[in-house]
Design a binder for these strands. Structure first.
Lengths: 194, 194, 194, 194
DNA sequence: AATGAATGAGGCTTCATTCAT
DNA sequence: AATGAATGAAGCCTCATTCAT
């Protein structure tokens, strides 16, 4: 099922697997080709160059994240539980898809020079998602809301990064950590004193 | 002034410059040598290998950060202002020293395999710094304190990362962002409802 | 004729030439490439690494030797002349194919670490060839036969080595030397007093 | 006792140790210097270049071998036991001093291009030693004697080479092998039928 | 739609050696 | 008598990419 049919899909798949197993800098056209079972040249039929391939992977990740966040935001109609759900969905996406998270958010812009920055606008829409829900709950100016959303975005982003870089306390279970992050996020943004 | 005597220093300096300009994966012995104006071989007089060079850079960064945090924590005796100061010092360190921040906190462990993990303990001591001050202000169990410190650590880390990756709103001035992050950190950790 | 199509063959050929002209330690991927007229990278299309290339050369040599010994052993049905013929065939192989002899028998195992020792079993089968014929002529225990074969093997091996290292008397023609070695071998192993 | 005083001696010593431990191709000026505890530059005070160092090592080996063979030839006055003793002495020298044997007899002349071949005459004197004793026992023409000595030389040389290259049957104890070689040498050269 | 052959640039690292001090 | 600093050449190997088929 996975090995037949479209080569393009298999290339992306194996690139992702390699990314996960060996890290970004170990991902090469040759290795992908070997994993897929084709020649490096064949990859160029479907992708202009390596950056294009990575970019396609990023788009895949964006799609996935959008789906995750979308379904999370539909589960609860009450805003506060929805807030929690969305935060958790984002954290879980990062922790469960480290390879996507890495290329989507940790890769330096230097790598992506050849691609239009407008592709990243999509990523910013996630920010608006957070802003929307904050506005719904807290009200307040659009500027304040965006600022808070950005801070929330930072917290979630940092939590995932540290987890993935294995720089967190080894004894701390991921699930506990996630819960705590969401808990603190709520305090930070939805407490009365703010 | 920069081209005199001390080759070792110039190597580190140019490595840092390259890191900043082109990102980690573009930092190579050859490029450093070219930037410094010596042969790649000469680098090996001062560093056993590339990892040793990077590691020296990391240690430099650790030193710098320790100094910054140290002096920040001495400025105020009252815990809450001290809390703010330390958070700001960390954020400013990351924003003003992006190269150091990258290799210290964003580099994947895969790169550093050849070096003992105990070197990273020093980095974790920063975490304890945050924990100490939280304990002083809020009291509470050691476990809760560490959890909160880790979440704070995530927030600060994420804020810097996003800023450095230029993924934040372009119109937002760094200083405003920093202030907001600290503000939210305080709310998150030092509000009554927590 | 030598520069056509088959690059793999030309690589092996030039590697052999270099080996002969400059000795093993002077054989490098770069030099081979230069001699062949291609880039070092191209060599890696046909051989995984340098050891694989050397190993291919060894196998070529094994093949050649096997053919030589095989046809020598078929020329005479009487055991004693066959004994002489095989000895001579081995000596001549070594003297006429110094490059092969060097990598097959003089190269230290350190060089070949990456390859399984079972590849060397093939070389030891030559020993059995000698043992077989000794058994046929002299009878005796299997152990004694193997011992004697090993000593014979030493003699032939040493004769070739010294000849190749140009440590023999310059005035001594190779053919005379070879004959004498075989003569002595016969005395050593097939005389009555033994 | 070994670390004080003459640096020259310590250099040779450590070069020999390295040769034994890691093989010829791993012996470099840098490694020798590190083992000795001096700088690579210092080596050049005592030796013009690497080849000169190796050559000095070869001379050391020659000396040692000469002493071994000399004392062996003095132990027995009767020629046949003396013959055996000398053969054994040579075999034992090679097996007990693999590093010397390698550079003395296995190193290719290419390595030694820069040195006068007359240095090798000394090595040939060993051949005369064998010739002398053969003449004493068997009589015969000078030419025949030299031929036989050369063949004997081949046998002994080959036996050591194969042993050092670990190409002999693993189950065969060195002492048994040595005895057998000498036994066969005697048969080869001193039997009636010859 | 895919391959086989090839390349130029560059990766890290080690070599023997020299020169000023 | 010895060193510290430096070099140019070369070691093996991998990279993304191209071009003819």
């Amino acid at each position: 099922m996975t090995t037949n049919g479209n080569l393009r899909g298999r290339i992306l798949e194996q690139a992702r697997v390699l990314l996960l197993k060996e890290g970004y800098s170990a991902v090469s056209m040759r290795k992908i080709a070997k994993a897929v079972g084709c020649t490096p040249t064949s990859i160029y039929i479907y992708f202009d160059n390596k950056d294009a391939l990575i970019h396609a992977l990023i788009e895949e990740g964006m799609e996935l994240l959008a789906v995750d966040l979308g379904s999370a935001s539909k589960l609860d109609s009450a805003p506060r539980p929805r807030f929690r759900r969305i935060c958790m969905a984002f954290l879980e996406f990062g922790i469960q898809n480290p390879e996507y998270f890495q290329i989507m958010f940790l890769l330096h812009p230097e790598k992506m020079e050849r691609y239009p920055t407008d592709k990243y606008r999509r990523a910013r829409r996630n920010l608006e998602l957070f802003a929307d829900i904050l506005r719904e709950i807290r009200g307040g100016s659009s500027f304040d809301t965006m600022l808070s959303a950005t801070v929330l975005w930072s917290l979630l982003h940092g939590a995932i990064s540290l987890h993935l870089a294995q720089r967190l306390d080894v004894g701390l279970p991921a699930s506990t950590f996630i819960e705590q992050v969401v808990e603190h996020a709520e305090t930070m943004l939805l407490s009365e004193s703010s």
